[in-house]
Computed example of a mutant assay.
Amino acid sequence: MSLEELVEAFAQHTAAQTDAIFRGDAKTGNKHAKKRLAAFEKLRSHGDAGRDLLAVLFKHPRMDVRAMAAVYLLRHCTAEAQAVLVEISKGEGLAAFEASEALKRWEEGTWTLDPVEVAAGEGPTGQTIEPRRAPPADAEAFWNRPMKKAQLKKLPIEQLIEMTRTTSAERMRAIYAGKPKDGNRMFDLLVAIHKELRARGIEAQRQLLVLLNDPDLGTRCWTATAVMEFAPREGERVLADLARNADGLVGFSAEWALEEWKAGTLKPL
């Protein structure tokens, strides 16, 4: 692929990842994230020429694409990338959240998407050193394998409800902490629990309604979205309240779920 084609692939997979996240399709989103990283690594292999060309995405019509390009280029063209991220962070939605988180990691010194490479050869004290490379997309430590369906079937309903409460709260905290891998693993577990409750019948599902009053906003948002298929009045009430009053990703997620529900495109978990 030419450099221009790699830049286009970066943009396409960024947009596709965002669309998958809004559909609640974490698996597809992860695939596009890995393909975006692969495109960046190929651009990076061409040195600053590849990085310079990626900067054309700072003017892309999609905000999420502009933000992602700026996130990857914070070291290479710091002032320009920061300007893009600061502007996007002033808005609302997922791109604004990602922009603000990227700026925070940059200021904290924990940003590692494109570190300076150290050439292989001899170090300052004569020792042989290997080239330093950028970390892989899944640099976070892997969580344990998700709980199997057979294990969920053995749990009482009360325990499934408690797992929903704790996992939905932890998932939102993981997302805010910039740990999407952890958040995706918890998403998969929550979906598996929801399917198990559905399989046990409407009375099992209705026990979720108690979580609509949970003090954790992430739990309320997840539960309200989940109950829309069998208790739309209760779910819509909570989502509307969160959309009006909750800040950040919770408020955005609630507003998106409401819009999808009104449009008839909200898919059951």
Rank of each mutant, 00 (worst) to 15 (best):
K179G: 01
L57K: 07
E98Y: 04
H76Q: 15
N30K: 11
E170I: 15
L6K: 10
D25S: 06
A26R: 11
R145T: 14
A39W: 03
L208R: 00
R198A: 15
E236D: 06
D25L: 03
L190V: 02
T164K: 00
N213A: 12
R66P: 01
E158D: 12
C77E: 13
P146I: 15
D216V: 11
L37Q: 11
A177Y: 04
Q205V: 08
G109Q: 11
R220W: 10
V227A: 00
D138I: 14
E5Q: 15
R165W: 03
W256F: 00
K267R: 13
E140V: 08
R244F: 03
M163P: 02
A231S: 14
V191H: 02
E162S: 04
V210W: 02
A246Q: 10
W111F: 14
F142E: 12
E170G: 13
E170Y: 11
E203K: 09
L189I: 08
A254V: 03
M68H: 05
W261K: 09
K181H: 09
V118T: 14
C221G: 05
T128H: 10
W143T: 12
L239G: 09
G251R: 10
N184V: 07
E5F: 13
A26Q: 09
D48F: 12
E234W: 03
D48C: 09
A55F: 04
A224M: 05
Q207E: 08
R62S: 08
S45G: 15
T265G: 01
E162P: 01
L3A: 11
L57I: 13
P115W: 12
L73A: 10
A26W: 10
K267A: 14
